[in-house]
C-alpha cells in the first residue's frame, strides 16, 4: 500500500512541478523544496495569481483567498494540494 500512495504522491508533485515550470519558465527539475517567491525572480504577485489559476485548472479545485495569498513556496503548495485532493500523508 505504501508504494501505491507514494506513486500517487509522486504524481501529484510531478504535476505541480510541471505547472510551476510553465508559469515561471523553469524546467521541472529545477523546482524543489527550496523553490519560493524569494528564490524565483519571476514570482511577483500577479504571477502568483497565474500560478493559483493554473493549479486550480490542473487539479479541478478552488483555492480560498487565504490559500491564494499564502501558497508562496513549493512545500506549502504540495501540502495544501495533496490535502485537498486527498493524497495527503496520513
Amino acid at each position: 500500500m505504501a508504494a501505491v500512495s507514494e506513486a500517487v504522491d509522486g504524481d501529484v508533485e510531478g504535476r505541480i512541478r510541471e505547472v510551476m515550470a510553465g508559469v515561471f519558465e523553469l524546467s521541472p527539475a529545477e523546482i524543489g523544496p527550496q523553490t519560493s517567491k524569494d528564490t524565483v525572480e519571476r514570482w511577483d504577485s500577479l504571477q502568483q495569481l497565474t500560478l493559483v489559476i493554473s493549479l486550480e485548472e490542473e487539479f479541478g479545485i478552488q483555492l480560498s483567498d487565504e490559500e491564494t495569498a499564502s501558497l508562496l513556496n513549493y512545500p506549502l503548495i504540495v501540502a495544501v494540494i495533496s490535502d485537498r485532493i486527498g493524497t495527503g500523508v496520513q
Partner: peptide, 13 residues
C-alpha cells in the same frame, strides 16, 4: 481589502 485585491488580480491575469 485582501479579497477585493485578489479578485482584481485574478481578473487582471
Amino acid at each position: 481589502y485582501a479579497s477585493f485585491a485578489l479578485d482584481l488580480m485574478r481578473r487582471q491575469v
